Computed example of a mutant assay.
Amino acid sequence: MRMDRPLIAPRLQLLPVSLRVANGFVQDHHRHHRPVQGAKFALAVAPRGSDCICGVAIVGRPVARHLDDGWTLEVTRLCTDGAPNACSKLYGAAWKAAKALGYTRLITYTLPEEGGASLRAAGWRLVGTRGGGAWSRPSRPRADTPDHLRGPKCLWQASGGVDKGKRLGAD
């Protein structure tokens, strides 16, 4: 085998997965988040010809209530085992699936120290930095979990390509 050739990343194939399977992968591989409670859909990637997944995306309603407008979904978890191009493949596929379902915007959040190269490669754009802090409010007391990341987050979005007036039930 010649060692002077650059290594080529294996081609990845998309796979549908259940929330249970996706959450199991998140439980085993995610650096700082636990599995989610619910989702609209979940996707996985695996090397072509293999059924051993190397990454998952879980997409659901936006966590922030004011963004839950019926047209927006959120990638609530994206997790890989480090396979090259897996993140950008999942972000791109998640947006394509969301558009096919009639949604006009897909968002996700990253930590400031995460560069966002996979998001940019998938055609997403950085919207800006968002708050952070505790979930609890005087009118709505909540206990934060120990793994709750309270610092600011970077909001990213993919949007466009669907006419809101064409959605069923739109007046």
Rank of each mutant, 00 (worst) to 15 (best):
A22V: 11
A22I: 07
A22F: 12
A22Q: 11
N23P: 11
N23K: 13
G24A: 14
G24T: 09
G24C: 06
G24V: 05
G24N: 14
G24H: 11
F25K: 11
V26Q: 03
V26A: 00
V26K: 00
V26P: 02
Q27W: 13
Q27A: 15
D28Q: 15
D28Y: 05
D28F: 08
H29F: 15
H30M: 13
H30C: 10
H30Q: 07
H30V: 12
H30K: 02
R31C: 12
R31T: 09
R31E: 14
H32G: 08
H32L: 15
H33L: 15
H33V: 13
H33C: 15
R34V: 03
R34L: 12
R34P: 03
P35F: 15
P35H: 14
P35G: 14
P35L: 15
P35S: 12
P35I: 14
V36Q: 07
V36L: 04
V36R: 08
V36A: 04
V36D: 00
Q37F: 01
Q37I: 05
G38T: 08
G38A: 15
G38D: 13
A39K: 02
A39Y: 01
A39C: 15
K40S: 06
K40M: 08
K40A: 07
K40E: 15
K40V: 13
F41Q: 03
F41W: 04
F41M: 06
F41T: 00
A42E: 01
A42C: 15
L43M: 04
L43I: 04
L43K: 00
A44G: 07
A44S: 11
A44R: 00
V45H: 10
A46P: 09
A46I: 07
A46G: 00
P47Q: 04
P47D: 05
P47H: 01
R48W: 07
R48N: 05
R48M: 11
R48Y: 05
R48I: 04
G49L: 12
G49K: 15
G49A: 06
G49Q: 14
S50W: 01
S50R: 12
S50T: 07
S50F: 03
S50N: 01
D51I: 06
D51K: 13
D51G: 03
D51R: 14
D51M: 04
C52I: 07
C52Q: 05
I53D: 02
C54Q: 10
C54W: 00
G55I: 10
G55F: 08
A57Q: 02
I58Y: 04
I58H: 03
V59P: 09
V59R: 06
G60W: 03
G60A: 00
G60R: 00
G60C: 05
G60L: 00
R61I: 03
R61C: 10
P62C: 00
P62R: 02
P62H: 05
V63W: 05
A64V: 12
A64M: 05
R65V: 01
R65L: 01
H66F: 15
H66V: 11
H66T: 13
H66L: 13
L67Y: 13
D68T: 06
D68N: 14
D68Q: 04
D69F: 08
D69A: 09
D69W: 06
D69S: 02
D69Q: 09
G70S: 06
W71V: 07
W71P: 03
T72E: 09
T72C: 10
T72Y: 12
L73W: 08
L73R: 07
L73P: 11
L73H: 11
E74C: 07
E74Y: 09
